[in-house]
Every structure is written in C-alpha cells, then in structure tokens.
Amino acid sequence: MSGKIKSTLELAMEKAAKLPRLTKEEIRQQQEKEYGPRGRAIAGGFLSGDLAERDLDVELSRYQGEQGEIVRSAFLASMCQAIDIEDTEATARVFEGIEVLVRDRQLEEASHRLSGILGDYQEQRRREFAKTEEAESAALRELGVSGSAIRLNLEQSEGWRAKRSALLEEFRPKLDEIKRELSDHLRRVICSG
C-alpha cells in the first residue's frame, strides 16, 4: 500500500501506451485524409481562377516530404479529372497547372494527343450542331414560325441532346485513356521525385 498515487495524466499516458501502434499504412491513410483535400482544394482554386498561376507554386511548396507528395498527387489527380472535352479553355488551364510541377516529354505528348482529340470533337460537334440547327429551323418554318425575332435554343432540343450525347460517348473512351495514362505518369513522377 506504499505505492505512489498516479496522476490523471500518468494514467492516461499508460493507457495510451498500451494502445496498438499505427501501421505505416494507417499513418499514410490518415495523412491522405488530412492532406489530400488540401491538394484538391488548391486544384479547385486554380481551375476556378481564384488562385493565379504564380501563386500555385507557393501554395504547393508549403507542404514537404510525404505530406507534400500527398498534396501534389491529389492536386494532379484533380487536374487530370478536370480535363473536359467540351471546355477547351478549362483543359488548357489544366495543363498550365500541371506544368507548374511537371514538364517533360510525356506531358508534351499527352497534351498534343489531347489537342488532336479535342479538335476532332469540336469539329464534329460543330458539324452536328449545324445540321441539327438546319433541320430544326426547317421544321419551325414548316410549322409556320419564322422571323428575326426567333432563335432556336438548341441546348433544350431533344434531337441535339441525343446527338451530343452520342458524340460524347464516341469520344469518351479516347479521352479516358489519355486521362488514365497521364494520371499514371504524373503519379510516377511525383512518387519518384
């Protein structure tokens, strides 16, 4: 009965010491949970224009070591996801963002291939849009509606929606392939750097 009376802190520390230690994988997962969203938020800020290109490097450089790797990986993954076949401006901005971290031959090749696909898509979309517009304008005239006061809202047209959807389906596999390759390449670069 001559034992020392332990303080609450000592008791808590003893309890904590008995808890199983986190594995490396668990620590990594916890860090992913904490730092992944930061990388995605930086990507979101850059893509929305809230974060300028000159500030991007500063934001990403705040994180070093394993945390930095997580932030940069999440950033690059978000950027790859943001590649949009219908939005060439957004896609150009994706590459501007990626180039802040990675500039190599593979990226240049991916950018070149993507430009080709986007160009093909835009051209086909333009042709299909014009054809739909012509057909629907003719139908409108046939109904008896014409004049300079009227303009078709093709975005609402069932016919155009179906054609656009079919076109996207046609191009989606090519786009997904490039996204996947680019994503894998960027992950390798970040993990090896």
């Binding site: 409108l140 046939e142 008896g144 014409s146 004049g147 006061a149 303009r151 078709l152 809202n153 609402q156």
Partner: peptide, 21 residues
C-alpha cells in the same frame, strides 16, 4: 423549358399570309 428565344425583330406566324408581328 425554353425552345425558342424571343428577341427584337419580326415574327411571322403562319405559312400562307402569315400574321406578321
């Protein structure tokens, strides 16, 4: 849902002798 945008200009309704608005 909007099928047509309406703006300043002429609007002809009908094929033969249309109502011209």
């Amino acid at each position: 849902k909007v099928d047509l945008f309406l703006g300043e200009g002429n609007l002809d309704l009908g094929v033969e002798s249309p109502v011209q608005l």
